[in-house]
Amino acid sequence: MDNDYYSIDSILAENQKIQCTFKVEIPDMGHLDGGAERDIKPLSKMQIPLWMAYILIYSDYADFSIPTPFNAKVRNALNAEARSVRLSGLVGQGGSWYGFGKMIVQLLDDAPADEMSRILTKAFRDRLLEVIDQAQHFAAIGTGGGGSANGDAAQMFREGLESVERELFVLAQESAKRTKRWYETTDKSVK
């Protein structure tokens, strides 16, 4: 999620497309869209990978619109109940919703960027407790334990975890397991 050049997470987070509207004509680049057009006309809309969109937007060749994973519908759903939104479904399998969001924040100006950052932070904090609770629950019942421990809602939530949340889930689960194992083993041998 950091902007480190070598960060795989960062590269994966950039692997998302955003809708750009071109402001200028760009000759001989029509193939970017996969279309038959030879040139990119002004006002034409195109899905551009984020890593390419940066330079277009900063050079003022194009504008972009807020991508679907962060549109008003998703925002409303997050406001209503952050835990019931399937973030993984919004950015594809293994996608990083927060990482993507963070990149959008960097593209936006002050007020919308603050708003976006607030949404991301709130969603993260609202979901964190549930992530940790479930991770610890699964550590407590052991790996082989039943899948639907506390109902379908919990399972839906787990399936909706995005990559950073998955990472946290694993961290919390591993840690709880190690501690549990320590509490439960007794070593009475003479060393």
């Binding site: 999620m1 950091d2 993260f124 964190l128 991770a135």
Partner: peptide
Amino acid sequence: PFFIRSMGVLTQLVR
């Protein structure tokens, strides 16, 4: 482990 990771994520998200 997960507290510091979460705080790291929040650092990234907070503007």
